[in-house]
Amino acid sequence: MTKVLVIYAHPAHQRSRANRMMLDSIKGISDVTVHDLYQTYPDFFIDVEAEQALLLEHDLIVIQHPVYWYNMPALLREWQDLVLEYGFAYGRDQQKLKGKGLWIVMTAGAPEHTYATEGVNERPLSDYFLQYERMANVCALKAFPNFEIYHSRHMTDDVLERAVATYRQNLLSYLEECRHG
């Protein structure tokens, strides 16, 4: 049976309407586990063995977080550094996650047009997150296209609801794709 692990890292979950709605939209889907890093590790002391076991039990790994100063939240970075270690996630004949799916989901407070050459951020959002592409390659993960929600705090309810529906549908589609190889 194919299983999804959502590694969720938001230090202020209660203030994120978009992330709360996305997670609510996948509640009740069988074989989907939401793993909130900030709730699990408020002290930042990550249980590496437990995290690695979780990864091994799932077929599609979703990393979901807000954009913080052109980067991921600090605890997610700590998780990546410790959990995806040499001899587990990568290394000569040590790619224990090989073939699993990887889907990156990000929310940004700024409008999409600001993430362009002529925008205030001077480049697309994906340019700030090249590490995910490298992570997928080094760990032999099958990367699905990133899902990005922009201007999330200021979206109308209708626009946000459509984005959330797309998020849910993409997750179900990628889950199905992982089921069939």
Rank of each mutant, 00 (worst) to 15 (best):
Y150P: 01
A74I: 09
T2Q: 00
M106Y: 07
V4D: 03
E51W: 08
Y70Q: 12
A74N: 13
L130E: 13
P11F: 02
A50T: 14
L160I: 10
L55P: 03
T117K: 08
P42C: 07
M155G: 01
E176L: 09
D47K: 14
G99L: 11
L125W: 00
A89S: 13
A110D: 07
G28R: 12
L54Q: 07
F147C: 12
A18C: 15
Y70R: 09
H180N: 13
L82P: 03
T117C: 04
T33L: 14
V67F: 04
H154T: 13
D31I: 04
N137C: 06
P111H: 05
L130G: 14
H35W: 14
A53N: 14
Q131M: 14
L141H: 08
Q169I: 01
H58A: 01
I46M: 03
M72K: 04
I63N: 00
A18S: 12
V6W: 05
G119R: 00
F144R: 02
N71D: 15
A53H: 11
E148C: 10
F45P: 09
I7K: 03
L97A: 06
E122G: 10
H65D: 00
F45G: 08
I104L: 15
N137S: 09
L171Q: 06
I26E: 01
L75D: 07
D158G: 02
L23T: 11
N19W: 08
F129E: 04
A53G: 12
V67C: 00
Y86L: 14
G181C: 06
P145N: 06
Y167L: 06
E133Q: 13
Y174L: 03
R92C: 08
P73L: 09
L55K: 00
V138F: 10
Y68T: 04
F147D: 00
A18I: 07
G99R: 03
E57W: 12
T156Y: 03
Q14V: 15
K27H: 15
E122T: 15
H151E: 07
L141S: 04
P124A: 05
E49F: 08
I149Y: 07
V159Y: 13
N146D: 13
F147N: 01
Q131L: 14
A50I: 11
E161Q: 15
C139N: 11
E122V: 11
G101V: 04
Q14P: 12
G28S: 09
R15P: 07
V164Y: 02
W69E: 11
E122D: 08
K3S: 09
T114P: 02
G119Q: 04
D127L: 00
G91I: 11
F144W: 14
Q169L: 08
R15N: 13
T2P: 03
E49S: 12
D127S: 12
K3N: 05
E78I: 09
A136R: 11
F45T: 14
C178H: 01
D93L: 10
P73T: 05
A165G: 13
A89G: 14
D43S: 13
E122P: 00
N71M: 12
D36Q: 10
